[in-house]
Design a binder for these strands. Structure first.
Lengths: 207, 207, 207, 207
DNA sequence: AATGAATGAGCTTTCATTCAT
DNA sequence: TATGAATGAAAGCTCATTCAT
């Protein structure tokens, strides 16, 4: 679909898909390139022809998501926020979660890999921050300030709010999809509402 | 100090310490036994004399924490609730965080390893759950219900509350100590208060 | 210029030139075909279209020299020797060195490859001997005998003399251009004179 | 015998011997570590335990010779010159060749490797020069000057003389043992005399 | 209890070569 | 003629593990 994928051969796509599955399942270090080759029905040499190294393959697995995750977000959703100017920040958060939910569900394996491997590969974090940081963080800061000035949100440091919201959402994803998927979970909708409710009352300025 | 450590020789302790540092830094799979031996200034064979296998070493690194983490918790804090020392659940949570804070800070590497490796080693999770589940979860459920009946907490499923509290705390630890330690963080005290405030208003039943 | 090069395409020439440089610099075995392709700005497949195998490429790199080295020599220079009939053998040797000097300097990389690889590729030696042996050696033997009969040269076995002259010259080339190029060398002219002087007095029959 | 060899295990010695044979026969790059392991009846891992890398093995194969070759030379032969045991430089050269002949014959494979690989491994040359250069070259210079002042040798630059002698001897060894061993060679004694005769008359100052 | 030499399976990576386009 | 994706064998090297000392 995206430009970067157009030039990939069938074998390359098969390799990336196999690697994604295996990295998510067993972890990057515990996955061997021969396993990947086997699963992708490709020769081991083919992997290194195209991705140079195992780490290069990891980057190719993980890179698109950092682009795609924020790419559409900027152009469609964030603009929508400014256009629509949600009256309550809760609606803004709900819209964001709603919008990214499908994406997250479709890309869960890659997100798992990203979360697992970030502590061990500084480049991953840097690449992620570079993609996100430059544009998004700044715009989100603006939005948060907008709601703070409206008197809806507490007056603590903007970045702390962003961190709190982000880590609350992330912790739900990690708990549900990585750590304890076997626990009894409610439907996505209910859990989402619960998160929003938690954030809502916790961060709201009370009159 | 603890019983399990009394019988360990100096070399065994050195090996466990070296393994802890390396597993935390590079991940279990990406750490080699020879590296561990070198860092511990022990022979490669010595590791296998005592820990049988690399995975056995992982268990020896991680096991004590599952015991030590919950041991003190049961005897002191949980009982205090029923002694009515904490009228409000916020105080109970604050006390628990306070109490475990030092322990967490002292054992951060092992906790990192535990969080990182749980998805790949079912035994780890089982062992963890066995330690916690049998005794603690049941008692905590009782405590939550205690505050629910008192009309202090929302009437959602008890386990969901536990999960929310746990993952909120966990996500703070991971964010601060694993993912983005370089961000500007306030003092532990302030951050703790913020977490409690978030949980407090989010979970309180409003009159 | 030569017949054998007339039919070569630009790509083929580029490949041979790249291979020559790399074989000389790193050795035949330590050079990979992909490196050659890259340096020649050709596709990997192109090499094998034209040269069948890596060894075939080596032969194509080295072959022309065995032909060219002796081809022109036979027809022009060696005949000149018989025509002119140098009075002293020193002049014959000097003429030969003088004449081949430019060629050697122009083809040093290929000569390096030839010297380096001969011990490992019997075919190279055989090809070399076939080119040289059949015609030249026999003619040179005649010339040496001519000077021996004239009473100018020592009466040891003709081939030993050839070998001595050849290896003296060769050892100078190897020392100057392969082993210790960084040593302080005099000009080619002076070094040449020194070689001739060494051979002259060493091989001359004293009255 | 030597100190450095005392600590080597049987397997290590077997590996060095196998490597020596194979490097000499097929060249360093064209020899695989698995071949070496097979010939040495050792596991491939054992090679890398002790020699770290294939290149490390090459150094271990070649290193001792640079030490052993020059060690005895200093103490015995060079001193004799100043003890006036050699009135003529021819006798000095003859003694040196004589003395090193057995060593050379015993260590021919390693010498072959050294000569073959020096152009591709700068460290080899540096190590060689370090061993020789510091002590020996300076002493040999003194000796040459000694015979020059005695009026026995030509007055060209001392280093040029050294180079000429060295490369004459080397070229004989290479020709006889590396390039064309199948040619009809006289006995070592006769060939040695021929070399000396070549050098003698070529370098002697004529009255 | 502790060592470290030895192992061989398996790792990531490179190689010369083939073939459809 | 020229390409470059694809191959699989083999390369150099690392690994967890064993065992005689």
């Amino acid at each position: 679909m995206s430009k970067s994928e157009q030039k990939l051969t069938k074998k390359q796509i098969a390799i990336i898909e196999a690697a994604t599955e295996l990295f998510a399942e067993k972890g990057f270090s515990a996955t061997s390139t021969s396993e990947i080759a086997q699963k992708a029905e490709a020769a081991e040499g083919t992997i290194f022809k195209h991705f140079k190294s195992k780490k290069g393959l990891l980057m190719s697995v993980v890179s698109p998501i950092t682009v795609e995750f924020y790419g559409p977000m900027i152009k469609k959703d964030l603009d929508k926020v400014f256009d629509k100017e949600f009256e309550y920040y809760q609606d803004f958060i709900r819209a964001m979660i709603e919008n990214r939910k499908i994406f997250i569900q479709n890309n869960l394996p890659v997100l798992r890999i990203l979360i697992q491997e970030i502590p061990f590969h500084p480049e991953l974090k840097e690449q992620f921050i570079e993609q996100v940081g430059k544009d998004i963080i700044e715009r989100i800061r603006g939005i948060i300030r907008f709601y703070q000035e409206k008197g809806q949100m507490v007056d603590i440091h903007t970045d702390t709010i962003i961190r709190t919201v982000a880590s609350t959402i992330l912790s739900y994803i990690v708990a549900r999809y990585v750590l304890i998927p076997e626990a009894r979970w409610d439907t996505e909708e209910i859990e989402t509402e619960r998160i929003i409710q938690l954030l809502e009352n916790g961060l709201s300025k009370k009159k």
